[in-house]
Amino acid sequence: METLLDPLSYAFFQKGLIVAALSGALLGFIGVYIVLRGMSYIGHGLSHAIFGGFAAMQLFAAQLYIVGAGLWGIASALAITNVARRSRLGADAAIGVITTASFALGVALFARFGTSGPAFDNALFGSILGITNSQILWLVLVTLFTVGVVFVRYRALMFTTFDPEVANVSGVKTGRTEALLMIMLSLAILVTLTVIGVTLVAAMLVIPAVIARMLTDSFARMLIISTIAGTFSGLAGMYLSYYAEVPSGTMIVLVGAVLFIIVLAATGARGLRRSAGMDSHAPRPTREVVS
């Protein structure tokens, strides 16, 4: 019990715990849509793209970093969606170019104008130090926004994820729905970036969702289980991070990975069968079937 209570005597840890739990929950929640749409790679790329905006705003207007990096992230997300849907060059290659270029820009800006130190490392690997009340507020607002959108657009999001073409001709504005999802994703990455870290955010989008998929065949239950798995990873990872004195993001992801292994061992072939083919909804260029 002391192990659990001792770190709570520090204000920074209390804030870190709240942010880690909320971050895990948020990424686990939205990760269901990302994983089922085969967009894990986009999540990974987007986190790197946002780093460019984060770096630029840290240097030129640090107080406004969340606004600037948010706009940068949303623009990147929409560009990525567009490229993934329409590119003739190959979505993976195009996304790779866009996102790594943005990441490289961030690194270059830091190297040329910034001071290498905690801010840079924190953005890459996450840190529980220096979390401000405004960061917590932003995280709460984005979480409420995401849950609210999923609540009112639950079926439209599920339909667009399962069968986008039929959803489109059945009255769902799939373009708008996908854009909304990408905005939610970029905002989620942005507000969790400082705790999880840009290099590890994608893992927390994927791992809880895959764990949940292995445990259930129900979409609604998958959302709930993924959120719980993300929350648990955040909480346990924070404590381990505190005691092991390593960046919070790494421990949060490692806890998720251990959970994944446990669930895989417990569910065996059934879990593998359930999680098979989760990349089969990757955004593809406009269909050219001419039968």
């Binding site: 999923v150 639950y154 339909f159």
Partner: peptide
């Protein structure tokens, strides 16, 4: 073959996707 039949949904959930204008889940 246009959809992933491993998608986590029941028959009822799939049928109701057509009623996507509903504002509650």
């Amino acid at each position: 073959e246009t959809v992933d039949w491993n998608f986590p949904a029941t028959v009822e959930e799939c049928v109701l996707m057509s009623r996507s204008a509903r504002w509650v889940p």
